[in-house]
């Protein structure tokens, strides 16, 4: 009689271990394996979250270990939601989020569409295009401050060369009207390749037979694009938007390196503002409430979005 794989594993198990395991049910074994992960998750994710929620109802300051911690109810939440400056940082974040996603999706999809065509040097171009996303955001932020430098910056020189304007007559990161666009440009430069790669995966997953069938039905290229390519790539595109949306909602390093939130507070995104409250002003309770609000916002929006994504996939 042939032995099952389970029997073979059982026979191969050393007697000492087998004795110790004797009597453990499958369920117990499953818990034994999953347990450490759950304990780790509880320790590093769930417990800090619950602790943050608890702190958000207090006036706790981490730099005042001897001060009495008072329960302040919803005061922190009400103060945050009625603070004009925080709404301005929300606006700055929304501007950054919307424009980076729009540009990255448009450019990323276009690049993926072009790269998907067979041509000489295809692989080389793909490698060159994805290089920016392999760099550290801190490094990217730093070298773009040089590119944006009015006197020696390559960006200003290029704009001056193309438009005839004096390169030192404008400062991308020092001008109130240009700085929000300066951070959008850099993030788009860095992360468009990521969107491109996801779109490329989507495009390459479309079976060629669908296009062949469409050809037989004499569908034009334009119609094939709108009725085959876009609908089949859409779930991938939506996934890319989700990833970039979540990432850019918590954008910190790149913008801190580029503008430090300035000029004034024009590019002070919520994550920068939150960091200032938590680790510069040391208003721990207040910052905890702020973090909870941001968490609920991202979680809520992401949940709605994921539901929409699932609907698109089911179509």
């Amino acid at each position: 009689m042939l032995k099952s794989s389970v029997d073979r594993v059982a026979e191969a198990t050393p007697r000492a271990i087998a004795n110790r395991m004797h009597g453990l049910s499958d369920r117990a074994l499953a818990w034994l394996f999953v347990g450490p992960s759950i304990v780790l998750l509880l320790a590093v994710n769930i417990f800090p979250l619950i602790w943050t929620i608890r702190l958000s109802f207090t006036n706790f300051r981490v730099n005042r270990p001897n001060a009495e911690v008072e329960f302040v109810g919803l005061k922190n939440y009400l103060n945050i939601l009625s603070d004009r400056d925080i709404w301005l940082t929300m606006q700055a974040t929304a501007h950054f989020l919307i424009w980076t996603i729009v540009l990255q999706v448009l450019i990323g999809f276009t690049l993926a569409y072009l790269i998907n065509k067979k041509f000489r040097g295809n692989d080389l171009w793909t490698t060159i295009i994805v290089l920016p996303m392999m760099l550290s955001p801190a490094v990217v932020g730093n070298f773009w401050t040089f590119l944006y430098q009015p006197q020696i910056g390559l960006f200003n020189y290029a704009v001056g060369f193309l438009t005839g304007a004096d390169p030192s007559s404008f400062s991308m990161i020092g001008d109130v009207s240009l700085a929000p666009w300066a951070i959008v440009i850099v993030d788009t430069w860095m992360w468009t390749p990521f969107v491109m790669l996801i779109c490329l995966a989507g495009l390459r997953s479309i079976p060629g037979s669908i296009y062949e069938a469409a050809e037989c039905d004499r569908a034009s290229k334009w119609r094939q694009f709108w009725t085959i390519t876009i609908p089949l790539v859409l779930p991938f595109l939506m996934l890319a938007v989700l990833f970039r949306g979540i990432e850019n909602f918590k954008m910190f390093d790149l913008v801190v390196q580029l503008t430090g939130g300035g000029p004034g507070s024009i590019t002070e995104l919520t994550s920068i503002n939150l960091k200032r409250e938590a680790f510069e002003k040391w208003r721990t309770g207040y910052a905890s409430a702020y973090a909870v609000i941001l968490f609920v916002t991202v979680f809520g929006l992401a949940s709605i979005y994921v539901k929409a994504l699932n609907k698109v996939k089911q179509r």
Binding site: P263, G264, R283
Partner: peptide, 20 residues
């Protein structure tokens, strides 16, 4: 002092550099 400093940083930069 940190809260006092951050308030000054914001108010001064908003006016002097950002011109608001």
């Amino acid at each position: 002092y940190a809260s006092l400093l951050q308030a000054a940083q914001k108010r001064f930069h908003d006016y002097v550099v950002a011109g608001q």
